[in-house]
Design a protein around this nucleic acid. Sequence first.
RNA 1: GUUCUGAUAGCUCAGCUGGAUAGAGCAUUCGCCUUCUAAGCGAACGGUCGGGGGUUCGAAUCCCUCUCAGAACGCCA
Length: 564
Amino acid sequence: MDYKLLVAQSLHDVLKDQLELNEINQLLEKPKMVEHGDLAFPTFQLAKLFRKNPAQIAAELQDQVSSPIIEKVQTVGPYLNFFLKKDQVSQLVLKEILEQKELYGAVNIGNGQNVPIDMSSPNIAKPMSMGHLRSTVIGNALSNILSRVGYNPVRINYLGDWGTQFGKLISAYKKWGTEEDVRANPIKELLRLYVLFHEEAEKHPELEDEGRAWFKKLEDGNEEAIALWTWFREESLAEFQKVYDRLNIQFDSYKGEAFYNDKMDSVVSLLDKKNLLTLNQGAHIVDLEKYNLNPALIRKSDGATLYMTRDLAAALYRKENYDFSQALYVVGQEQSNHFKQLKGVLSEMGYDWAENIHHIPFGLITKDGKKLSTRKGKVVLLEEVLNEASSLALQQIEDKNPSLENKEVVAEQVGVGAVVFHDLKNDRLNNFDFTIEEVVQFEGETGPYVQYTRARGLSILKKAEKESFSTSENYSLNDSYSWEVIKLIQEFPATLIRAYKQYEPSIIAKHSIHLSQAFNKFYANVRVLDEHPEKESRLALVYAVTELLKQDLTILGVETPDKM
RNA sequence: GUUCUGAUAGCUCAGCUGGAUAGAGCAUUCGCCUUCUAAGCGAACGGUCGGGGGUUCGAAUCCCUCUCAGAACGCCA
């Protein structure tokens, strides 16, 4: 049920010689003010075609347009304002969502094609930070959006488990670490060693060479190096899993950078065969001047490979294995240059699918206005943030609803939900400065607000003992409070497609807030459980809202407690 | 220096393809629980949409330019 299209259709019946249907549909807009109706059609474009005064055109069209869902057409100057029949439209909208339930809005534009999504990708031996949260939750939300528009998302956790940093870590461990300390508190101790290394390297730059040498040994298969690396990796993965469990996120692949170690030589020789490599100051590079980019470093002067080399190998592997129609990389915007280079090199290699690789950048999280840096030990630990959020939510429950069952479970859902929602509600690219007070909010435009709205709706349904609604029955509503809700339900399918096209989860988050706001106004002004001719229809509306809020939150990866 | 982001209310941000009087949330002040969960609803306060040009019937939105902020710019990832 797309009422905009129906109105466009009725306009097209009158204007078919002048404008295409989709042109009319594009011109139709949602007026900002209620007194301007539900849809508005500006006639300025027609004024050019007809060489007439737009207001006159509007006045002439007013009487010619008709449709079963149009209540009345008003002209205000050059605008044609449409007021729709609330009962008719609400009946159609409710019928559709009651029938389709959690599939409401789902379409098939992806034909089941694979879309690998490079997401989360924390670094081994380092704690997960707020920055990893962004990649994780954005990637997860995009996966959910993609599957609802018919694609098959493949969530890939491209673990940062390889690189010079491990040489440094091994070097630091051998100098200052003990097995005991690492066993006792793996991530914390490994982080301490890593930070210490960088502090010492400031004073003794020769340490950098030592770190690089250890990495070279690791790459060459040195037994001691591999044993230490394997151990660090296992300890780290176990820690990460705790966080993923709390976020309720699963991955389809954990193939990290190390997985590509044995695929490096073939990438390098492939580049060489295509005559793309040049030797520059002892390093092998691919020149990208024609793309107005700096050269891509493929092999360092000591022979070791780099991030770019591994990403090339990974891209080739993913194309080979998933035959993707598009591949996404949910990585911070500070790496956009890297992805431009990656696409550039793939294009140079003659792969036209390079254009199907999309970097999905997101903004930087700072603390006290400064960039976070693991190397300097300046991090915001994700686990601590989630703990804090969860315990604040528990306090809130003790305060507001002390008799609630499963308090700890709900507190976790609400607290973690607040953090996740906060990360998704604004434009991906916005930077933000981290403060716990801002991230863990329960009032206003927040995750808990949406969760709470749904819980109140469910509570009504429970009191009415309504669990299901007959799809053969006709439910219709006429008041202005439910009308605002109906319009937002009707908008959801188009909203989902917009979120997909822009790879933008915040569009879904905004829909959930707007729907909650409209529903809470309805809730405050319309007594659902009172005896009334429209009682059943009101209950159907409540049900539809709880279903749709659940879908919104589920897409975002926010849990939906039934009571809170 | 070059390139990329961004600049809208005291703060955090919306504003879909240019359209009618620029909207939320937070904060502040006030009002609403004997009635479906007050994590809610309502009201008040709050803006020369960074500056200047241009395109257009019409610009927060498109183009140019300047200012300011953040980021990236070969052997880290």
